[in-house]
Amino acid sequence: MATPARSRAISLVINGEQVEMEVPARRLLVHFIRDDLGLTGTHVGCDTGNCGACTVQLDGEPVKSCMLLAVQADGSRIATVEGLAPDGDLTALQRAFNEHHALQCGYCTPGMLMSASALLARNPHPTEEEVRYALQGNICRCTGYVNIVEAVVAVGGGA
């Protein structure tokens, strides 16, 4: 039988790289990503799982990394904002965020990009309504979402 323990050796793939580390059971995935792995592109904007700034993709699906323990991610494949354009060659979505002025302070942007890129992978030509639905879990306090929605729709070829 599995024995409960204060920490666990976990193994996961993050942005294509294999990581193995012993982590305390209580450590949140977001702090593992930021503090232990130094991938500070993933942000923390609240303490109740509402804001989505910490959104990463877990096995391809967007999740809030502040509502997961790092040990729960054992065996998974994680993608963060740093993995979108590893060589600095921006994706169409990142370029659209720039062209449409879809970010101001940029703090929510990594989470937005991870939610939006997951949407586009499932649904390459989303409507405005579908984009708003997909981004409902990501709070932005700067843009009123207008240009964010416009940018994602534009990537899919919509008006």
Binding site: P4, A5, R6, R8, A25, R26, L28, D47, C66
Partner: peptide, 13 residues
């Protein structure tokens, strides 16, 4: 935001 210490187990059945 920061949890108290906790023990963790992941059973298979």
């Amino acid at each position: 935001m920061l949890l108290r210490e906790v023990d963790y187990a992941r059973p298979s059945t």
